[in-house]
Design a protein around this nucleic acid. Sequence first.
DNA 1: GCATAATAGTTTCAATCCGCAACTCATTGG
DNA 2: CCAATGAGTTGCGGATTGAAACTATTATGC
Lengths: 152, 152
Amino acid sequence: MSRTTLRAPSPDWTDPDCPVARTLDLVGDRWSLLVVRDAMDGARSFTEFQRRTGIARNILTDRLRKLIAHGVLAQRTAPSGRRQEYVLTDVGRDLFPVILTLRQWGERHAFAPGETHSTLVDQHGAPVPEIAPTGADGALLDTDTTHVQKTR
Amino acid sequence: MSRTTLRAPSPDWTDPDCPVARTLDLVGDRWSLLVVRDAMDGARSFTEFQRRTGIARNILTDRLRKLIAHGVLAQRTAPSGRRQEYVLTDVGRDLFPVILTLRQWGERHAFAPGETHSTLVDQHGAPVPEIAPTGADGALLDTDTTHVQKTR
DNA sequence: GCATAATAGTTTCAATCCGCAACTCATTGG
DNA sequence: CCAATGAGTTGCGGATTGAAACTATTATGC
């Protein structure tokens, strides 16, 4: 029996050493992250994903398959009925910080002043505060205070 | 003179109300975020971006133009010499949390146990800790404790 | 100061990907 | 039974991509 990892796309990666590149290989296309966004907000069925994203059906079929193959979604039988549904795995739920930072960047830079947009709120309806990357000492981190260290 | 915003792609958005979708419209393709990653790690010139990412030259030309048009990169004259270079704007530098969360998800889920990868470190060489989204009260936030509130 | 190399693209062309619309097939509701 | 809905599949034309060759403008070595 052939032995291939569930994770790898085709045979190999755009940039095998870089976690950013690997993530983009897995979910970094035009639609996958929108599917994940909608899954996080309650979408379960093929038609519901199609309706929310506006993605073409054949492409949605392909993306759902890939997300399942990569362990982001799981397909299971709906509790009430015989139909199938797509739900996030723990791996998929763990994309929450990615979606959140995309959302927050968009809120800051992709809307004209005064333009309205949807908002992410917590259980009490309070808006989710902005994420800020901090170091071990609590200091703010950014491009200027960090760098990539190559594997040795 | 025609009046178009620098921000909008073509004329309109995949999902105009959603900041996640807008961000993906601007930088959510296979290569743009890798270009930003390399810009954050010191790449400046056309050839340097090409060498690091392995992107085809014509596509790189296109992506650099789009990133400039969207205000993520700026093109300026190199300090020592007459050549041009591409540098991140404040808007581009603000993508740091996005790149970081992509990186951290990849580290957690896109590598087999024991596989090595590049690491992001701070000025002292200490690894950057994992980002955790928290609410106003300091409690951890995830998919189950938040939801999208539509514009009213 | 001339040859050579590197930089920064542009062009061409084939292959791939995507979106749209039409079609299938199963289930459900009346 | 009939219509409607869900979950895809298929076919096809147009857009996007990738590889390679080509051009033009700086740098560099001798």
